[in-house]
Design a protein around this nucleic acid. Structure first.
Ligand code: MN
Ligand code: MN
Ligand code: MN
Ligand code: MN
Lengths: 219, 219
DNA sequence: TTGTTGTTTTAGATGTGTCTAAATTTTTAA
DNA sequence: TTAAAAATTTAGACACATCTAAAACAACAA
């Protein structure tokens, strides 16, 4: 039961969408993230439903079946392992690897990806802090909070991001707000909800409300 | 001027075919190596000719243009660098890597392949002894001879193979006839042209006529 | 030179994934 | 409850790469 390049992308997108909001995933949203048109999505949903990779009833949205979810997780595993490889071995920046991984994630070979995993030392997280699914289909469900959820005086460690655009990642890099950094909440400016945080070396940094929502921490 | 997955495969196949026989490359031969039908080949030749990637006149066969040859060399560069990676870093056998490289060679990114090249230490040859084209499009034209061209008593070093099937490569591996081995020609059995060679540690090995033609050496 | 053979090309069709425009269904708001 | 708005699906078309069957052409031998 091999899924095509395009089918894999649909399954992955639907998986990601059902992670964020827990309701049914709707057609327009899928079209948006896949950069395509709703009519095309409907066609594909019918096909994937036919193949039993998702549950689909007209006008009702979709959810993945177990086989569908499994394929999605395999693709995500490949995506994140390749991203790790690109950053750790080829010295790419964390803002440069996503598009490349979008291509590499479709290379078909279980043996290859398991050897890559081993070569990389079985990493648990990708360069953006996202957990890497295991070969058996398990994935750590991590619950991180955005910085904006911290109360004044509380402390946390940066562990992930909610947005993966190069612009955002470059900005974080420049501010040295990278995975593993300890920060604490200083105050929230009443005027525009700008967040002020302090780093380990007592540096104060101002972060916009939008940015603070997209930086994830553990406590 | 981006070539599609399929177009790249055609250009690569035509490049390889024009390397062996130096005449024009003909339709049926292309269909054979690409595992497709002559009618399909004609369609594609018209398209590639339209794009100025090859010279095509009906019934006359084809030859690559400079842009076409260039794309072919880029694909071959990627193929051979990935093969090197798979063998040297992920410990695949030289008989296991070709099909994987057939997929990886289509990943689009100049930056990726140049970083991979650097990561691997700028290798000159792939695991089968084939020269790896440089980023600037140059490729070592090597002239190796088959073992069968040695005269009795002459010595050579194994430097390549003319056939890449897993079965053949596994056979060579088992016989320890790998790249770099020094061998000398002992005799040719008159009856069926079986070739007898001796290795450095004075071991005698019998090789069929067919195999002797497909093992390449430098003198 | 002419007929035969093998190669190559055309004609017409298929499968996949996509699109626009129009029709249908659901949701929302009056 | 009903009308308008938004979401979704159908209808019909297209691009790409492929196929089979039939026609056109080239090479060769009689
Ligand atoms: Mn990514
Ligand atoms: Mn990532
Ligand atoms: Mn190969
Ligand atoms: Mn090779």
């Amino acid at each position: 039961m091999q899924a095509s390049f395009t089918e894999e992308n649909y399954l992955k997108a639907i998986y990601h969408l059902s992670e964020e909001g827990r309701q049914q995933v709707n057609t327009n949203r899928i079209a948006m993230v896949l950069n395509t048109k709703p009519a095309s999505v409907t066609d594909m949903l019918k096909k994937l439903s036919e193949k039993n990779l998702l549950n689909y009833t007209r006008y009702q949205g979709v959810s993945l079946t177990d086989p569908g979810r499994n394929i999605a997780l395999k693709v995500i595993r490949k995506h994140r392992l390749w991203e790790f490889f690109l950053v750790e071995k080829l010295n790419f920046g964390w803002d440069e690897v996503h598009d490349l991984a979008e291509q590499l994630e479709h290379i078909q070979s279980v043996e290859l990806i398991n050897r890559l995993d081993s070569f990389l030392g079985f990493p648990e997280y990708d360069p953006h802090g996202d957990p890497i699914p295991k070969d058996n289909g398990t994935i750590k469900c991590y619950d991180l909070k955005p910085i904006s959820a911290l109360h004044v005086g509380e402390t946390g460690t940066i562990a992930g991001v909610r947005e993966h655009s190069p612009l955002f990642l470059q900005y974080l890099e420049k501010m040295n707000l990278v995975i593993g950094k300890k920060i604490s909440m200083e105050e929230v400016i009443a005027y525009d909800e700008t967040v002020v945080i302090t780093t380990e070396n007592n540096q104060k940094i101002n972060i916009s409300k939008a940015a603070a929502k997209n930086i994830l921490i553990t406590i």
